[in-house]
């Protein structure tokens, strides 16, 4: 079934990439898990990310069974769930974020089941109303576009797809077909937080993707520090950092897994450093 919804209205994602193009630099895309380690700390961190240098925010929707995530992000999700996080609360946090920030794009990232249980129609409506710009749902390949991708597009949300090293030329058009906002290139086969990517491969892969799409290409999985961010920002339109931020957050928690006085600051410091790396990249 290949239905083509009406063209999407411009989102904050389109706007930021247009602006960064004129500035000649890549976007820093930061991932944090909603409600980790508790709602108040997570809200404060979310609100602080744009000023620290995050150009786009990926906000994780916790799920008990995150099959594509490594131990660091799994633990973040479980901390949030134990603290009472729900999809409803996550949407409320986005709404609160939007009361002070109307410019920074926010993408919700997670797995399909909580959305399915919430109800797809209600979810895309509520997400849009809360100020969400796009969705990344890991366990929805293009073969399942009817489930959420098409309803999300109809509601004016970008549906951002992951392309991976296993996505070959024959498959790429299918993956890109209903993708909007940006393409998220997963630079290694594996789970989040695994080995550092081979940067020469990244350059090659970005070039391969560019032959198929005009969408901005963000690269993630395995980016830990400013140097890595800089290396990737040389070739890609955006650098996604997740596990490194969550690790920094986790390192500040007390023995019970609760936030301490340094929790927000440590993550903000790392975002600032990564942002400097991205800014320092010479775009090729």
């Amino acid at each position: 079934m290949t239905s083509h919804p009406a063209p999407l209205p411009r989102t904050r994602i389109d706007d930021i990439f247009a602006r960064l193009k004129t500035e000649g630099r890549a976007a820093l895309v930061t991932f944090v898990e909603a409600g980790d380690p508790d709602e108040a700390t997570s809200q404060a961190l979310l609100d602080a990310l744009p000023a620290a240098g995050a150009d786009i925010i990926e906000f994780g929707m916790p799920f008990t069974d995150p099959m594509a995530d490594g131990p660091v992000i799994q633990a973040a999700g479980l901390r949030a769930l134990h603290a009472g996080q729900t999809l409803r609360r996550t949407l409320a946090m986005v709404k609160a974020f939007r009361s002070t920030n109307d410019a920074t794009p926010l993408v919700l990232m997670g797995y399909f089941n909580p959305i399915y249980v919430y109800g797809v129609e209600a979810f895309v409506r509520d997400a849009r109303a809360a100020g969400v710009d796009g969705l990344i749902v890991v366990d929805l390949p293009p073969e399942e576009d009817d489930e959420l991708c098409l309803p999300a597009m109809a509601a004016g949300l970008n549906f951002i797809r992951l392309a991976t090293p296993t996505t070959d030329a024959a498959r790429l058009p299918k993956v890109l077909q209903n993708t909007s906002g940006f393409v998220y290139y997963v630079s290694i086969n594996g789970i989040t937080g695994a080995a550092e990517p081979d940067y020469s491969q990244v350059e090659h892969a970005v070039a391969r993707l560019r032959a198929h799409t005009d969408l901005p290409i963000c690269v993630g999985f395995g980016v830990r520090n400013a140097a890595a961010a800089r290396a990737i920002a040389t070739h890609a339109d955006g650098v996604v950092v997740g596990t490194a931020l969550i690790s920094a957050l986790a390192g500040t928690l007390d023995q019970q897994g609760h936030a301490t006085g340094t929790t927000r600051g440590k993550v903000v410091d790392l975002v600032q450093a990564l942002s400097q790396g991205v800014h320092a990249a010479q775009r090729g």
């Binding site: 099959m67 594509a68 399909f112 890991v138 366990d139 929805l140 390949p141 073969e143 399942e144 797809r161 992951l162 392309a163 991976t164 090293p165 296993t166 996505t167 070959d168 498959r171 993956v175 997963v186 086969n189 594996g190």
Partner: peptide
């Protein structure tokens, strides 16, 4: 052909696994 038994089944996997 899409692996559905009525409304059930399907292929809800990450893109990395889809080609496999």
């Amino acid at each position: 052909e899409r692996g559905h038994f009525g409304n059930f089944g399907g292929r809800f996997v990450a893109e990395t696994l889809m080609p496999l």
